[in-house]
Amino acid sequence: MATEPALDQAGLQGPAGWEEEADREHAQGLGPWRLGLRRLRRNKVALAFGALFVLLVLACLAAPLWAEHVAHTTPNENHLSDTIQIDGETTNVVGLDGVPIGPTWQGEFFLGADPNGRDIMVRLLYGGRNSLMIGVAAAFMTTVLSIVFGTIAGYFRGWPDITIRSLLDIIWSFPVIILGVALGVALALGGIQIGPLSISGDSLAIPTFIIGLVYVPYMARPIRGQVLSLREKEFVEAARAQGAGPLRIMFTEVMPNLTSTILVFFTLLIANAVLLEAALSFLGAGVRAPNPSWGTMIDEGIDRIATAPHLTIVPGAMLVLTVLSLNVFGDGVRDALDPRAKVRLEH
C-alpha cells in the first residue's frame, strides 16, 4: 500500500512552542534521555495517569490477598444459595428471581455478585490479572517480532524486505477482528501442537498469541522505515568501515536509535491489546470460561444488563480506566521523547 499509516502528533501538550523550548534545553547540553525525562516530569497529567496504571496493576496483583482476607472466597466459587448481612438485614446473594445482589460496599460482595453468586470484586481483580497479562505478553510478542522483521527488512532491503513486506501486507489487509476471531476459534478447537509443545484450547496463550500476531504490521512498518533511514547515517557507515558485521551494527548502532519509538509503541500496544482481548472475548473467541477476564465479564454482563447493569458497568469501567491511563501516559511519553513521532495504532 502506498499510503503510510496515519500520523498522530497531537498530544496533551501541543507541538507549538516545542522547538524553541527544545533549543533552549539543547543549549544546556542535556542528552535526549535526560531531556525527555525532564519534559515528562513537567507533564503532570501524564504522570498522574501513569501512576493510576501502576495502582491498577498492583491492585490486580493483590487479587489473592483481597480474595482470602477481605472477600473470603475464590473467583470461581459459587454462592447461589448463600445469604449475607447488610445493615443487619439478611439478604440473598442471588435473589429468588435469579437477580444477583448489587454492590454492597462491604468486604464480601463489595461490588455485588453475578448470577452464579460469584463475588464480582474478586473476579474483577483476577480477571484484571488475565487481561493485563495477555495485554503485556501480547505487546511484548508484537514488539519483539516487529523489531526482528522491521530491522531485517529495513537493513538488508532486497528480497528479505520484499518477502517480509508482502507478508505483513497480507496480515494487514485482514480485518483485525475477523482474523482474531477466526484464529481464536480455529486454535481453540484442538489446541496447538508444535512438536513436544502442546497448548490446550482454553489456555490464555492462545488469545495472547493471536493478539501478539495481528498487531505486528502496525509496528513493523514504522520500524522498517526508521531503519531504512538510519542505515544511511554516517555513524553506521563509520561502523561498517571499522569492519562491524550486520548483526553488530543492528544491535549496537541501529537498535539504540529505535528505543524511543519502541517504548512509546509498547505502552500503546498494551492498551490496544487489552481492548482487543475484550473484543475477542465478547465474540467468544478470546479467554474461555470459567477463566475470568474483563472481556468475558462484560460479555456475561451484557446478557443480564436489563436486571443487573452493574455486571456490565463494573468490568467495563475498569477496562476503560486501564486503557485510558495507558493511552494518556503513552501519549505523554511520546511527546516527551519525540514530539514529532508518528505513531498510531487502530481498530
Partner: peptide
C-alpha cells in the same frame, strides 16, 4: 490550542479511543 477547551477535548478524545465499542453500545 493549549487552552482549557483544547485540553478538555483532548482528554475527551482519549476517553473515546479507550472505550470498547460493544460496552458503550450496550450501555
Amino acid at each position: 490550542a493549549g487552552r482549557f477547551a483544547d485540553r478538555f477535548l483532548t482528554i475527551l478524545a482519549l476517553v473515546g479511543i479507550s472505550m470498547p465499542v460493544f460496552w458503550i453500545g450496550a450501555l
